[in-house]
Amino acid sequence: MTGDLLAAPGPVVTVAVGALRSAGSPRTAGPDLDHVRALAGTSEELPPIVVHRTTMRVIDGLHRLQAARLRRQPEIAVRFFDGDADDAFVFAVRANVVHGLPLSTADRKAAGCRIVASHPQWSDRLIASVTGLSPRTIAELRRGSAAPKVPERGRVGRDGRVRPVNSLEQRRLASDMLRENPQLSLRQVAAAVGISPETVRTVRARLLGGEDPVLPRRRGARRAPAAAGPVDTTVRSHVPDLSRTVQRLRADPSLRFTETGRALLRLLEVHMLSNEKWTALVHEVPPHTRHVIAKLAAECADGWRLLAEQLAQEEPDAHDRR
């Protein structure tokens, strides 16, 4: 149930009021009596209610059912919903979020917890679209729930597509597609795996350069926060030499006395950390932010790599002009 969550369940039929049940509503406090009286007093014809066929439980229109009972109506117009009980609850929540008397924030959060448990494969954005909560709130509810873990294959988005849970797996999928069919466009690969065309461009560039398409920093972010063992110091063993190089650049008037030059020097100095300091940062990052910070770090690395490639390409021309 990931398409139109409010699609008409079926044709309108007439059902005896006494045959319907009102239990299981997402409204934990029950119906609003003032709203029921207002509906009972209107002379306009009310829309059909929606009923779960298997259980005869009202999933949309609880106030209209109560108004019919107050009027002592023997029958009421109904549309039947034929999904299972979990999907019926999803329909009830979504219907009560987008029209009628809105659900309270507490009711929407309670519904979010229940949907996270019943549909763990759904993405935070999809559940947020159902409950009227933010994806961030759904993520917090997911972390605090006892719901089963999401299958490794990923989560179902609002468009019905299954996407990997993390960008590391998305990059791997993109690299596999590009290896199998190099003629695919950036947009085709991006749409297939759920990442941006620019990220696919980076993956392709790394493949062409003989590099691992999954950035080393991002791979490391998947390890446990307190992972023990020796730290690979080969990558940044030359930090002291780099620091001295930056210090020499600070004496260059063309950098020191221009706004762009000073900004570049400040950025270079910020990244001149020792292996010990980088490792300390990894261990101090809170677990719930590791994925986001890993993604940001990887994007920053992409930016530096792009700068290096462009400078290297322009270097011969610069020498020719001298």
Score class of each variant (00 low, 15 high):
Met1Asn: 14
Asp4Lys: 08
Leu5Val: 09
Leu5Glu: 11
Ala7Ile: 05
Gly10Pro: 07
Pro11Glu: 14
Val12Phe: 04
Val13His: 00
Val17Lys: 02
Gly18Arg: 11
Ser22Ile: 02
Ser25Leu: 02
Pro26Leu: 01
Thr28Pro: 03
Pro31Gln: 04
Asp34Gly: 08
Gly41Tyr: 01
Val50Pro: 04
Val51Tyr: 00
Thr55Tyr: 02
Asp60Thr: 05
Asp60Leu: 10
Glu75Ile: 08
Ala77Tyr: 03
Asp84Thr: 07
Asp84Val: 03
Ala85Cys: 11
Val97Asp: 08
His99Lys: 13
His99Gln: 15
Gly100Glu: 10
Leu103Gly: 07
Thr105Phe: 00
Gly112Tyr: 00
Gly112Glu: 01
Arg114Cys: 06
Arg114Val: 10
Ser118Gly: 14
Arg125Thr: 02
Ser129Cys: 03
Gly132Ser: 04
Leu133Ile: 06
Leu133Thr: 01
Arg142Cys: 00
Arg143Trp: 04
Gly144Tyr: 03
Gly144Glu: 13
Val150Arg: 01
Pro151Ala: 15
Glu152Tyr: 14
Arg158His: 07
Arg161Met: 12
Arg163Gln: 09
Ser167Cys: 01
Ala174Leu: 06
Ser175Asn: 06
Asp176Val: 14
Gln183Leu: 08
Val189His: 08
Ala190Glu: 05
Gly194Ile: 05
Arg201Ile: 07
Leu207Ala: 10
Asp212Pro: 14
Pro213Gln: 12
Pro213Cys: 10
Arg217Asp: 12
Gly220Val: 01
Arg222Phe: 04
Val231His: 05
Asp232Thr: 12
Thr234Gln: 12
Gln247Met: 12
Asp252Tyr: 05
Arg256Thr: 05
Arg262Ser: 09
Leu265Ala: 04
Leu268Asp: 08
Glu269Ser: 11
Val270Arg: 14
Ser274Trp: 00
Ser274Asp: 13
Glu276His: 05
Arg290Val: 13
Lys295Asp: 13
Leu296Asp: 08
Ala298Asp: 15
Gln310Glu: 11
Gln310Leu: 13
Ala312Arg: 13
Glu314Lys: 12
Ala318Arg: 15
Ala318Trp: 10
Asp320Thr: 09
